[in-house]
Design a protein around this nucleic acid. Structure first.
Length: 295
DNA sequence: CACGAGACCTGTTCGC
DNA sequence: TGCGAACAGGTCTCGT
């Protein structure tokens, strides 16, 4: 069914520009940033390229400065570094930093000019060598910022979960100085940067903790286990180039390793009990009622 | 400070 | 077959 639709589209549109983007959490954003930095044949690395011009098709996508200034200011700048912080992609330019957040449905595609625009193209950059970068985003939640100092935007973020400087002891201290349910706390980017709905559910299951467990009730050992679980699922996600879900395909394969996410009713990989789906903090939440007993 | 509801958006899938 | 409801990777703001 999906195949027929895709083939139908392929006849009228470019294959790379008509997919709706899937889920961007830390591993997916990391995968995309790495791709832009290192290249993925036939796509080149963006490092060293100079931006000739920008076009904004959905004005809100250019969050700051407003679209006209955004276009004017970005022209002529050269890409000198590419990285990631939390769920943001950072392109360091000669004068400013281009900060990209994919939100729910954003994705980045590269193409060599001339190329027809994808259906969901919201903002495009043209480089002087003819390559173009399209920001495609069906739901229009994604945003780009062109900032002299990215810290104004990133300053409030919590620690990177994969950085060694976040020790189990520090993590335990962060957890216990708050009094919140674990799941919404893990999704709070000021508490911990980069974890989203999928990896939160996966990590909580791996750590055998119920999503509603009060954060200040964890022992140091439980906190250490949770940090270990978060790191394990994020690393596994990165190793698989992120996850692709539903009818969308972007190249990641971590969805094949989901323990609980979107596995409602299926057996828990640890004990066989059917996975339950509930709502916590207005987000779909999946867990095993036996491995993760209610607090 | 913690938390829920509503916004922002569009597309697919589900249930009747 | 059709049609409205439910649901989706994220985050922001407002009211309690």
């Amino acid at each position: 069914m999906i195949l027929f639709k895709m083939i139908g589209r392929l006849q009228t549109q470019t294959p790379s520009s008509d997919t709706i983007a899937p889920m961007p959490e830390l591993p997916e954003v990391e995968t995309i940033a790495n791709r832009l930095r290192d290249g993925r044949p036939p796509e080149p690395s963006l490092l060293g390229k100079t931006i000739a011009r920008a076009e904004v098709y959905w004005p809100k996508t250019a969050a700051e400065p407003p679209a006209p200034a955004f276009r004017q200011r970005i022209a002529g700048q050269r890409v000198t570094a590419i990285g990631r912080r939390a769920k943001f992609i950072l392109l360091t330019l000669s004068e400013d930093t281009l900060v990209v957040h994919l939100r729910m449905s954003g994705d980045i595609h590269l193409a060599k000019d001339p190329q027809p625009f994808g259906r969901f193209n919201r903002l495009a950059l043209w480089f002087t060598d003819g390559w173009q970068m399209a920001f495609e985003d069906a739901r229009k939640f994604g945003r780009m910022w062109l900032l002299a100092d990215p810290q104004t935007l990133l300053g409030g973020l919590g620690p990177e979960p994969l950085e060694a400087s976040l020790t189990p002891a520090k993590f335990h201290a962060r957890l216990t100085t708050r009094r919140r349910a674990l799941k919404p706390l893990l999704l709070d980017q000021a508490f911990l940067a980069g974890v989203g709905n999928i990896y939160a559910d996966e990590a909580l299951h791996l750590a055998r903790l119920h999503p509603l467990t009060p954060s200040d009730s964890l022992t140091p050992a439980q906190a250490a286990d949770l940090l270990k679980a978060i790191r394990a699922v994020l690393r596994a996600g990165i190793k698989r180039n992120g996850a692709s879900i539903d009818w969308v395909y972007r190249g990641g394969g971590y969805q094949h390793e989901f323990r609980v996410y979107q596995r409602t009713g299926e057996p828990c990989p640890a004990c066989g009990t059917p996975i339950i789906r509930t709502t916590v903090g207005q987000r779909g939440t999946h867990y095993c009622p036996r491995c993760q007993p209610a607090p």
